[in-house]
Design a binder for these strands. Structure first.
Length: 430
DNA sequence: CGGATTTGACCGGCGC
DNA sequence: GCGCCGGTCAAATCCG
């Protein structure tokens, strides 16, 4: 049975409210995969048959045709349903709108238990009877289910849309994967959680379990259930701090997000709490996003019905590189979540999806300039948190400590030539 | 009953 | 060749 040789979670020390490890975990041996070898993509001869003109936004068909993938091989083409866009919503090119049940609360989607964010203290995923191919691999059709409320009661959420340039990157990656299995990109997250099975919005099938050498904690292997999707993930408890789970994703989802992802049905802000005091308010917009803002004002909450228009990676940039933990709050409309109680769920649900899309969205030429696509994310050490803006403005620098070396996302995306964080190259969606 | 999980067996790479 | 190890397979089992 599960955890035969695994210490019961109850025996683990409780996550500290203020956690100051002697050294951050990312200084330890973490499975990483570089994308240095992607540099050859700059070589024009690699793309002997460029595809950009073929690809329409959101239409994977030409891509698969270009790649010589048959219909049987290719994941279902994503054809999003668009409706009920809030009148004041600003949706840039890089996002699309899909239907979402209004009954969905912030990160709880009762109408779809398959993708509802689980309580990480125990696995609350509902093992539904839904065929796997209709979940993550149906191309985002978001077909109404019998247990969903009236179709009239739809709200909107936003999700990333793949642009032609992105498709080129995907194509390059796919061709890359066909050339060499060793160059499949990986993402690694370190997340504080008592649960070994982190909800990330995709649907996974467990296919293996191995004991880890010199560790009492087993390693579990999962495969994305979407047809034609070869993305895998490995989940293992972090030996040096068993309150954390290391999740490693291998490969890229080619089918977009699941039909009803556990992203919020309303736009929201994430605020990370800087330990060194408020940072300069670099946001020019009224969102007043600061590194140290804890709670949004009422007006901000009122605007929470707007669509998400931009997503930013942020890091806690205290000199120590250590977040004091537990201070993050999320405000979405009337809903507010405190990190200590709920943030684990939220963070685990969002970051893998968003960050994987970063991989897809960033121009290949930019990716070539950055260090390994490994992201270590947890709530205490460095917090690769996201700020989601509703006004469509560029806030590339807000909530960042430019040039700091706290091991956050900015380090991991650090420009190899300059040694400084150039997140804007990665995070600029518009 | 059917999908998901479990778990021992199996396979291939690697070092000696 | 042998043993170790990480990863995967697949029959058995679980479970809603």
């Amino acid at each position: 049975m599960e955890g035969k040789n695994t210490p019961p979670l109850s025996s683990l020390s409780s996550p500290p409210q203020i956690f100051s490890p002697p050294s951050p975990p990312f200084s330890l041996s973490i499975p990483t995969t570089t994308i240095d070898d992607l540099n050859f993509l700059d070589d024009d001869t690699f793309l002997e048959n460029p595809l950009p003109d073929l690809v329409k936004e959101g239409d994977f068909g030409p891509l698969y045709e270009w790649l010589g993938i048959t219909d049987e091989d290719a994941p279902p083409v994503e054809r999003p349903v668009k409706r009920s866009l809030p009148p004041d919503a600003i949706v840039p090119e890089s996002f699309e709108t899909v239907a979402q049940s209004e009954s969905s609360s912030f990160f709880s989607i009762p109408s779809n238990p398959d993708v509802a964010v689980s309580n990480n203290n125990n696995s609350s995923r509902v093992a539904g009877k839904r065929p796997a191919e209709s979940v993550a691999g149906d191309g985002g059709n978001a077909s109404p289910r019998s247990d969903e409320p009236d179709d009239e009661k739809v709200n909107t959420i936003t999700r990333l849309k793949l642009k032609p340039s992105t498709m080129t990157s995907i194509a390059a990656t796919m061709r890359l994967n066909r050339r060499s299995e060793n160059n499949i990109p990986k993402l690694a997250f370190l997340t504080e959680s008592e649960s070994d099975n982190l909800e990330d919005g995709y649907k996974w099938r467990k296919y293996g379990r191995k004991t880890v050498r010199n560790s009492p904690y087993p390693r579990n292997y999962y495969r994305c259930t979407a047809i034609g999707c070869n993305v895998k993930k490995r989940v293992e408890r972090w030996l040096d701090d068993p309150t954390h789970v290391l999740t490693t994703y291998e490969g890229l989802h080619l089918h977009g997000l699941p039909p009803i992802p556990p992203t919020p049905s309303k736009s929201f802000h994430l605020y990370n709490n800087c330990t060194t005091g408020p940072k300069p308010d670099r946001c020019s917009c009224s969102c007043r996003c600061k590194g140290a803002v804890a709670v949004a004002g009422a007006g901000e909450q009122n605007r929470a019905n707007n669509a998400i228009t931009s997503v930013h990676l942020g890091t806690v940039s205290g000199g120590s590189g250590v977040n004091d933990g537990g201070s993050l709050r999320i405000v979405a409309g009337e809903n507010e979540f405190n990190y200590n109680k709920h943030m684990q769920n939220v963070e685990q649900a969002i970051t893998p999806i968003i960050l994987q899309n970063f991989m897809l969205s960033a121009p290949q030429t930019s990716l070539n300039n950055f260090t390994p696509m490994t992201i270590i994310n947890n709530g205490h050490y460095q917090s690769s948190l996201m700020n989601v803006h509703h006004d469509g403005n560029n806030h590339r620098q807000d909530c960042f400590g430019a040039g700091s070396s706290n091991g956050g996302a900015e380090d991991l995306f650090r420009n190899k030539s300059t040694g400084t964080g150039l997140l804007e190259d990665i995070v600029n969606f518009s």
